[in-house]
Simulated assay, not measured.
Amino acid sequence: MLVLNRAVYLSLLLGMLPTTAWADFWADNCPLDRPKPMFSNGGFRLNKSTGLATEIITLNKDVTLRLEQRTCEYLSRTYIFILKERQAETHVAGWQYKKSVELLSLLEKSSAAKLKFADEKLDFADEKKALDNYVQQEPLPKEGVEIDINDRPYDSYENISVDSQIGKKDFRIVVKISSGPY
């Protein structure tokens, strides 16, 4: 009888656990489809339970890019630029934004050979303009601020934010571009 009680207890316990760990993230209420690979050699990985897609590419000998994508009601792409060398200008206000513009330009230039579909092209002109405008208008630019890329109606938006992470082994600039709802 004791074995049966343990079995009943275990089945009740397992029945109470959330099932999202085994479920498909996009199965319920996601108007956008799953993220697709952007780069032909990025080692695309998709976690179907969390909805996170990742790719990693090398832009040059000093810069590696980790792309994280999420799609459902919103589209979010986080570009994590990993630099081997520590940046000298970190004492200057707004340096993260200037570096982000440089790195987005580098990604545009190197993406033609690395994109999964040859007819596609990355273009960050609006995003770079938004970052430049923010730095010009803000005397002390702060990290993590959501900056409007385009003037959109209130029911939809597109924004960009920038953060930096200074580690012992590397240096990271994190550029997050989000849009939605869809």
Rank of each mutant, 00 (worst) to 15 (best):
Y74L: 13
Y157T: 05
D24M: 06
I160L: 00
C72I: 04
M16D: 15
A88G: 10
L10Y: 13
E138K: 06
G180V: 08
W22Y: 12
S164F: 01
C72T: 10
K109Y: 04
K109H: 05
N133V: 13
P153G: 07
A125R: 13
G42D: 08
F44H: 06
L140S: 03
N133E: 05
A125K: 13
K176D: 07
Y182G: 11
E108L: 05
W26Y: 07
A88P: 14
T50Y: 11
P18N: 08
L75I: 13
C30F: 09
K128Y: 03
Y79R: 11
L83N: 15
E85G: 05
S11E: 14
I56N: 15
L14V: 14
T90L: 08
P18T: 08
L65V: 04
N29Q: 05
T54G: 15
E143G: 04
L103H: 02
K121W: 09
H91F: 15
P141A: 01
K114E: 15
D155W: 07
D123N: 15
G180L: 08
P153C: 05
D148W: 03
K129E: 07
S111R: 02
P153Y: 05
K128C: 00
I173W: 00
S110P: 02
K109N: 04
K116C: 15
K142W: 03
T20V: 14
Q165P: 00
L32A: 04
S179K: 14
Q136L: 09
F25I: 10
K168P: 11
Y134T: 03
E146V: 03
